[in-house]
Design a protein around this nucleic acid. Structure first.
Length: 362
RNA sequence: UGGGCUGUCGUCAAGCGGUAAGACACAGCACUUUGACUGCUGCAUUCGUAGGUUCGAAUCCUGCCAGCCCAG
């Protein structure tokens, strides 16, 4: 038997194929489905998150059986609540827009799961993320790199991984050229998840009503306030700050003859500033909670590529440290730079190499 | 109470006798392992109301109703 590796199995096609790849590569594969959240009991109807629903567990179990690998369901509800749910709620409370997937990767999949893996005698953890890890021969450091299937690349949500975490991480899907290829493999292996649709939305908010989630689980009561223009003139009423994020257009309910976008959220004054198309662009941001991958920290200036959201093309920028925060100045203005979201930076010469990232402050 | 103006989708707004543009908002779908953005589709059988003229009216005429402005 080869080296032991724990693979996080969500019950989706990606992690199913990832497990199959590991098995084929000769690893001693242990499938684990993380029990993260129990869902909610709404009006007597029990809703389940996509990550850890009974059907997800069932799918993962069937795949594990089909592959002939050991399989467990493990309870991570406590860690998930403290590291993801609480964070999610608190960010909204202070007028920011959280990214729960990033928190979950950092604290659960490459945090708590990694620890549990050790208990099972496995030094390695794998997931079905589209990304890859390699070792830089010169420095000996672990590098996080983009997946071959660039349209599915998920390094944006993985920038926070440390050297320690990366040294114990495998991403079996990194070499795949496309999602279609992953499905083809799933098909050829007759995996029961081969035709399962891609997941989306926040896994613990299956109906996509995250505001309802905040009301039910965190007692947040959205407070009506003013929409104002750049000069402070009142344009209308908003339904409570948690309903909005920077760059948002839909759901404003305000007819201005032109599309209007959220350009600023002020939780203190419970006020939201709206602007016309174009005013939601900015070319500079500051970030904190930094993590760098090819180096521990840096000084001076560096030309980089950076992106401020999951589905954005990296853009040329210059980064520098200002006090304890990272300042990034883009060559061209970026759309809807949003506090709470991540900025992820890539090597300017080789944009497939992740240099690191941080949480956008402003 | 005189004089003038206006009344078309939730909002703004074309139309000026030939059978209801458009924008914004809204809804659905697509895209998306976060929130968003974006794209596509849908959205007034009816033009304040009641009559009249006409082959034909939101468009012309008359009464009424409502709102606005000026005068008192």
């Amino acid at each position: 038997m080869g080296e032991k590796v724990v693979i996080g199995m969500s019950g989706g096609v990606d992690s199913s194929v990832a497990a199959a790849v590991l098995k084929r590569q000769g690893y001693d594969v242990i499938g684990v489905t993380m029990r993260l959240w129990d869902g909610e009991n709404i009006d007597g109807c029990f809703t389940e998150g996509s990550c850890c629903s009974l059907s997800a567990v069932e799918d993962a179990r069937r795949v594990a059986y089909a592959l002939g690998i050991e399989y467990h369901v493990m309870d991570f509800r406590r860690e998930f609540e403290s590291s993801v749910i609480d964070y999610f709620v608190n960010e909204y409370k202070i007028g920011r827009t959280p990214n729960p997937c990033i928190a979950c990767n950092k604290h659960l999949k490459f945090g708590a799961l990694l620890k549990k893996a050790e208990i099972l005698g496995a030094k390695l953890v794998a997931t079905g993320h589209y990304a890859s890890v390699s070792v830089d021969e010169e420095s000996g450091r672990y590098l996080l790199k983009c997946a071959n299937a660039d349209e599915k690349d998920q390094t944006y949500a993985l920038y926070s991984l440390t050297q320690e975490q990366l040294s114990h991480t495998l991403f079996p899907l990194g070499e795949f050229k496309s999602k279609a290829e992953v499905r083809t493999v799933a098909d050829s292996l007759n995996l029961p998840t081969a035709n399962k649709p891609d997941s989306q939305e926040i896994c613990f908010v299956p109906d996509n009503d995250y505001v309802g989630f905040l009301k039910r689980n965190a007692g947040i009561v959205p407070t009506i306030g003013d929409f104002v223009d750049i000069n402070g003139n009142v344009l209308g009423q908003h339904k409570g700050i948690v309903n909005y994020t920077i760059g948002q257009r839909k759901g404003l309910g305000i007819a201005f003859g032109k599309p209007m976008f959220v350009i600023k959220i002020d939780p203190k004054l419970n006020r939201i500033t709206l602007g016309e198309q174009g005013t939601e662009f900015s070319n500079c941001l500051f970030a904190e909670d930094l993590n760098f991958i090819p180096f521990d920290n840096f000084t001076g200036e560096m030309r980089v590529m950076a992106k401020v959201r999951y589905s954005a093309a990296p853009a040329m920028a210059t980064m520098e440290m200002v006090n304890e925060t990272l300042k990034i100045t883009f060559d061209t203005p970026q759309r809807a730079i949003t506090p709470g979201q991540a900025v992820v930076i890539y090597d300017a010469e080789n944009p497939a190499i992740v240099l690191g990232g941080g949480t956008i402050l402003t």
